[in-house]
Design a binder for these strands. Structure first.
Lengths: 212, 212
DNA sequence: AATTTTTTTGACCGATTGGAAAAATTCTAG
DNA sequence: CTAGAATTTTTCCAATCGGTCAAAAAAATT
């Protein structure tokens, strides 16, 4: 006798597949139109099934959205967690930037979904920002401050440093259309991420002041 | 005999006022939920009037959205237009950054509405990006390149430099909730923009490499 | 093959959506 | 004050929204 008749968590092969299919389609839709701007019909069509069929696997729109968002939050913080206090400061920061940039390249929809949530005021995970995220950033800001005290990197506000890394890297996912439009066909190809990596290395290491 | 019975463009005092009132309310709503996620009812309520009354002034949702977006586009490009090829390179770039940062501080809703449009792929002003915006950026990138050739600023990709300025400054409007959450009550007050300005000056001038 | 379970479909529901139409009201100019 | 214009409200509509339900179809189990 099964105590769980709901297909809540994937059990059978087909359930696992459809769950993944739906989440994939939902990521596509949610990342473009945000939660309110997306419809279940849209997601169902993108997943190649009917709306009632989709609702057999996820019993509400929120139930589709929540797990996607939760997974993104974890993925998003991982690179920062990996920043090692015992490593060489400049290479640590550089590789953090590189990792974040790779995420914008490889998971642009995730980045846009996250941005969409921010734009509407992050309802529902306001708490996560104020606790989990803040604690992590506080910790890493302290690490960076330590590096500054050792004279390993220039003095600056570590919080705004982290913001600037987030901003510059996520820009290539969130404003992808603009970036590609401005770069044009010549420079707008896949090579743009390597160009961006090179530029960000220069910016964060040396800034714009010319070497004399 | 009036040839224009439609209150398309404001004519009377009351029309000018209501137009402005509606656009103001719509900016609030659109900037949070995007075009698709916003409803006319929401905007009407925010403007303190009934939906049919609002539709007397703007005959469709698109008709409210379009002028707002058009105005933002112009406002957004103005600071870049003001970057003067004959000025001192580093101060020119610094004041461009400062101006953009002030816009994030003073017009955060405009920034978020713009970001929302980008996220959904900028339908409707794709052309503007590929022509007007691209031309302006091309022009300014050439100016920056000239500065590099004169040895006035360090060599780097001028396009990605502009992107990084856009990204770092707009971040404070678009991700405002996250920024304030991470900074906490102590550092998250209005002073955060001055802190950001100081940090960005450091970053874009000198980067992170410590002075020896 | 028969039965049970899982998956899919179609028909439907009340609420909300963008918007139209017309009546009712308010304002304004003569 | 009154006629005409401008503004607002009331009522309404078809389409779409998120979601339910029962029946049909397909799989899995026996």
């Amino acid at each position: 006798m099964s105590t769980d008749t709901e297909p809540g968590r994937p059990v059978t092969r087909i359930q696992r597949e459809k769950h993944e299919l739906i989440l994939e389609a939902a990521l596509d839709v949610f990342s473009r139109y945000g939660f309110r701007g997306s419809t279940i019909d849209q997601i169902a069509e993108a997943a190649g099934m009917s709306k009632p069929n989709l609702l057999y696997y996820f019993k509400s729109k929120e139930d589709i959205h929540a797990p996607i968002l939760a997974r993104i939050l974890e993925t998003w913080l991982e690179p920062l967690r990996e920043m090692n206090a015992d490593g060489d400061p400049l290479p640590e920061i550089q590789s953090y930037i590189r990792r974040k940039l790779e995420m914008s390249r490889d998971f642009p929809r995730e980045s846009r979904l996250f941005a969409n949530e921010m734009l509407r005021g992050a309802p529902g995970f306001h708490e996560v920002l104020n606790t989990e995220l803040k604690e992590l950033v506080d910790e890493k800001a302290a690490v960076i401050k330590g590096w500054m005290n050792q004279g390993k990197i220039a003095r600056c506000d570590p919080y705004h440093l982290i913001f600037s890394i987030w901003a510059t890297t996520q820009h290539y996912a969130d404003f992808d259309i603009q970036v590609r439009a401005v770069l044009g066909k010549a420079r707008g190809g896949e090579g743009r991420f390597e160009d961006a990596a090179r530029f960000l290395d220069q910016l964060f290491l040396h800034g714009l002041k010319p070497k004399k």
